[in-house]
Nucleic acid binder design. Sequence first.
DNA 1: GTGGTCTAGACCACC
DNA 2: GTGGTCTAGACCACG
Lengths: 125, 125, 125, 125
Amino acid sequence: MSLDIVISSSSEKPIYQQLFEQLSSQIILGQLQEGYCLPPIRTVAKELQISVITVKKAWEELERRGLIHSMVGRGCFVAPLSSFERLDKRDEMAFDKIKKDVAYYKSLGISEKEIIELIRAFYKE
Amino acid sequence: MSLDIVISSSSEKPIYQQLFEQLSSQIILGQLQEGYCLPPIRTVAKELQISVITVKKAWEELERRGLIHSMVGRGCFVAPLSSFERLDKRDEMAFDKIKKDVAYYKSLGISEKEIIELIRAFYKE
Amino acid sequence: MSLDIVISSSSEKPIYQQLFEQLSSQIILGQLQEGYCLPPIRTVAKELQISVITVKKAWEELERRGLIHSMVGRGCFVAPLSSFERLDKRDEMAFDKIKKDVAYYKSLGISEKEIIELIRAFYKE
Amino acid sequence: MSLDIVISSSSEKPIYQQLFEQLSSQIILGQLQEGYCLPPIRTVAKELQISVITVKKAWEELERRGLIHSMVGRGCFVAPLSSFERLDKRDEMAFDKIKKDVAYYKSLGISEKEIIELIRAFYKE
DNA sequence: GTGGTCTAGACCACC
DNA sequence: GTGGTCTAGACCACG
């Protein structure tokens, strides 16, 4: 399998979400090219030692977001997306999160300046 | 009840966590002074129209973080914290989160510059 | 259980889709009022003699469409929708289908007039 | 190959059904004359870049409907149909679908008038 | 008690 | 061989 996925079963995040996040990143960043045929879900499940259903759930979410499309009997393929569309989906996925994050930072009384310094510091790591 | 809490039952966040976040903010920001006696959990539960168990869970989390301490038969009290200690706890609660957030932003290929612009924009709202 | 659902296991449609279609109709038509608490999925599953997972899948689709929202430990509730929003969702669900249907009718060489006569006839039944 | 077929691999419809629908339309509309010898299924498969099995399945469905008949070792031929018979088969194929469609429209609470307006609009496209 | 997640394993439609 | 659907049953988080 050529997928580059790491699953942490001890993570607080559900496995299907870890899968979704990693795959969606790779598609949005163009690391998986359009038309690329993903490995069969049963293969992915076996290699990651998780259930087929869990993989399926992640794939369904990817399809719902228009990042892949599945064809019975043929496999699942990375959707054709222009650079513009990829950027659009990326922003769509990031904005809501950032908005919530900022709301939380503010509720803790952390200043804009402090946040930005921390962001810069963690970005360099 | 003199607590200033707002619960959203339609939020995606569990109720106990909403409680915890709001109380911890207020303690960390010094809005609830040290030694202040919190209302009985049954009172809080009744006024917010939630389960006693839910309130208990939030209080336990606050105690675990050292923000309150309970005395059997007497009630729960805001812990005595110096300004320095409060800042320390605040940072402790914020750092891990920011670190994770930045990791996610990076995985989506968003630049440090973009993030900071968004943070600034959302901060002004 | 007060839900008014009929499942045909011999139908060509998947069970979860039958569930989804009937529930969504009832919500869109205002037959299930906003805030109404649906019976627990395990109860629905038992009464309809289908799997919990199948019910869950239908509920997930309803939630995705904004027709219900679920709260862990509390249940699933019909979303608050204005008459306008309900009409909007109804149209959203109907338009795509009608468009496809018309394309098929046209490919069979059936005239607009014939179709309309048939629609009228079946509508009266 | 003189067949006029377009296959969409990204369509939600199975390929064999796309094949069947297009061929049956052409036969019913008299675009393929009776006695016309269809190209060998291996030729069709190669030109459309699909599996022979898929073509075979579509051909079987056409034969089941009495639109073509196969003669071992000689090929598949468009069945001899009078104009009347063709109209009959067309209606047979359309009626069930329209009936189901109308049932669905009704379940969504869409009025006969609305449907007809939409049908007219989509027909003009 | 609720819903959320994950599992193993079956059968089907499609290619 | 592929993905799609359905099943039974487990464990967890939440209230």
